[in-house]
Design a protein around this nucleic acid. Structure first.
Length: 273
DNA sequence: CTTCGTTCCTGGAAGC
DNA sequence: TGCTTCCAGGAACGAA
């Protein structure tokens, strides 16, 4: 599932293929993926626009267009943006085709069809979920002074807090489990039970696992691929995610599985307290 | 306000 | 072997 490092890798691989290209037509095969405005207006307004740059904010990609338009894309679980030669066969699970100038097209594919797309302009209403994103990992805004007061007000599990995009933008289940392991903190610990030193360790761990994920071009656990169709290498560097029942790479203990904040969570009962 | 459960969806794994 | 059931999860939403 694409989280911050995966979306960052999609951005990097997409950039050289689509920036400067014009969208000639848009073919929408699953209109319900377009959350704003309607699929008809979405296609109509995109036609003839030129992609000027790409930004990532949390797990959102924003393709900036001329005429003050912005194409927002959230890949959710199995969404992908793929650049495909016009002569090649169309990709599996194709849901939206952006016909570009040049010899390549941009496709949005999605197995489980949870992905969402929006087309907004600077006068549009805010898109909830996008405008409320919290600070990013590796940013100077993510500090103990920021996170400690938030944690002290919450009795819910710390894992749920760091998965909340309004608190930190970009963590999903993989990097949340990895960060909690690296920080030596159990995912089910109430957020308000963490002291300042633990919160400092957690921020450091979040930054470290995200930086490593980016360096390794993302984690391909099931379906994730970048815009060139390549997989990420980070899965071999995971300590806990997807390793329930296997031995802890640090202490040898069998890793535990537990549902925390509604998600499958894996942790080491010896390394994490 | 917070917290928790439900919903969406499909492929692949697990179970009988 | 072949069918059925369950599970994976990001985030919006509703209920308590």
């Amino acid at each position: 599932m694409p989280e911050l490092p995966e979306v960052e890798q999609v951005k990097k691989t997409l950039y050289p293929h689509v920036v400067g290209k014009k969208i000639n037509t848009v073919e929408i095969r699953l209109p319900r993926l377009i959350k704003y405005p309607t699929a008809e207006i979405f296609a109509e307004k995109l036609t003839g626009r030129t992609i000027t740059s790409i930004e990532r904010k949390g797990k959102y990609l924003r393709l900036n267009l001329d005429e003050n338009l912005y194409l927002l894309v959230h890949l959710r679980m199995t969404g992908a943006l793929l650049v495909i030669k016009k002569m090649a066969a169309e990709p599996l699970y194709a849901k939206i085709k952006f016909v570009l100038t040049g010899d390549e097209d941009l496709w949005f594919t999605d197995i489980r069809t949870f992905g969402t797309l929006y087309l907004i302009d600077h006068n549009d209403k805010n898109i909830e979920g996008y405008d409320t994103l919290g600070p990013e990992p590796l940013s100077k805004e993510l500090t103990v002074d920021y996170l400690a007061p938030i944690c002290s007000k919450k009795s819910a599990a710390i894992k749920g807090v760091i998965l909340d995009q309004k608190v930190i933008a970009g963590l999903g289940n993989i990097y949340a489990d990895e960060a909690l392991f690296a920080a030596g903190i159990l995912p089910q610990r109430p957020a308000n039970s963490l002291n300042k030193e633990e919160i400092a360790r957690l921020i450091e761990a979040v930054n470290a696992v995200i930086a490593q994920g980016i360096k390794n071009h993302g984690t391909t656990f099931r379906n994730y691929q970048d815009a060139d169709g390549n997989q990420g290498d980070n899965v071999k560097h995971l300590f806990v995610y997807g390793r329930k029942g296997e031995k802890c790479k640090v202490c040898g203990e069998t890793l535990c599985g537990l549902k925390v904040a509604g998600r499958g969570s894996t942790y080491c009962s010896k390394c994490q307290r």
